[in-house]
């Protein structure tokens, strides 16, 4: 994918020379080391890597949640590096959807209110037809009036997924969305993310350390020590697992390499 793709709108987000450092001088740790990456529109991308590889940091930087030390990040054709806090907040609200591993929902709001929260905050009314479609797709029709405490973990993640989809954002970031779920509920959520891409035309970036989860993506990006080290199209769980094992070998060989924060 070259710059031409950006113009035609095939790239949902990209980063050039993205560097994120913690600390300074002797103790400086590079979480991301001059990463170049592009996220294709309408695709399901998984980001994998061992603990401390910088995969979460990458996602946070792409989503405008964290500042970068060097390099540039674009969301669509907006450069988000250099945006002010207020503009970043608006960008996250209007153009990005989020799913976190846990604590995704506001406990005082019911499912329906949680789903429309980003639009309510923005003071916009949701696209009713789209909202109905999302709700039906995720099977939340009869759970709308429930508070998060009255929902199972899987149902809660489905509500979070619906919230991420509801505003029809340019990009959905999912940070370990299945990390806290049992395998059945996890599969269900992955299925929904897949559907969101295939049937609803959404773009999803998912950070995970579970090869099984990564296998649902169209493309897997492998991060190691803050660098993009590999990618895999049409992944299978076995292939991803094999690739991940090679990290352990490398890491074993390097030994006591300091691990950056994720």
């Amino acid at each position: 994918m070259g710059d031409a793709d950006v113009v035609t709108g095939v790239v949902a987000a990209r980063a050039r020379g993205l560097t994120k450092a913690y600390g300074s001088g002797e103790t400086q740790v590079l979480a991301l080391d001059a990463v170049d990456v592009e996220i294709a529109r309408g695709r399901f991308t998984a980001v994998m890597g061992p603990s401390g590889s910088g995969k979460s940091t990458l996602m946070h930087c792409l989503a405008g949640l964290d500042t970068v030390s060097a390099g540039q990040v674009w969301l669509g054709d907006t450069e988000i590096t250099g945006l002010k806090e207020r503009e970043l907040t608006r960008l996250r609200r209007d153009r990005v959807g989020f799913m976190f591993q846990s604590f995704n929902l506001i406990p005082t709001l019911n499912a329906a209110e949680n789903i429309t929260l980003p639009m309510d905050i923005a003071g916009k009314s949701p696209d009713r037809a789209w909202l109905e479609q999302v709700i039906d797709t995720l099977g939340l029709r009869d759970r709308l009036k429930h508070r998060p405490a009255q929902l199972s973990g899987g149902q809660q993640q489905r509500v979070a997924c619906a919230r991420a989809l509801a505003a029809r954002p340019e990009l959905i970031f999912a940070d370990e969305p299945t990390g806290n779920l049992d395998s059945r509920a996890g599969l269900e959520v992955l299925g929904f993310l897949r559907e969101a891409v295939d049937d609803l035309g959404q773009t999803v970036v998912m950070v995970t350390h579970d090869p099984g989860a990564a296998a649902h993506a169209d493309l897997v990006l492998f991060l190691g020590d803050g660098r993009l080290v590999d990618e895999m199209r049409e992944p299978t769980a076995e292939a991803v697992l094999e690739r991940m094992k090679r990290f352990d070998v490398v890491r074993g060989a390097i030994g006591d390499h300091p691990s950056p924060r994720t």
């Binding site: 207020r86 609200r93 209007d94 990005v96 989020f98 506001i106 406990p107 980003p118 905050i121 923005a122």
Partner: peptide, 16 residues
């Protein structure tokens, strides 16, 4: 704190 973090992440402005 976590709830506030979540709200800020999904786009609640500081003013709000």
């Amino acid at each position: 704190t976590r709830e506030i973090g979540l709200l800020r992440a999904i786009g609640l402005a500081r003013r709000q």
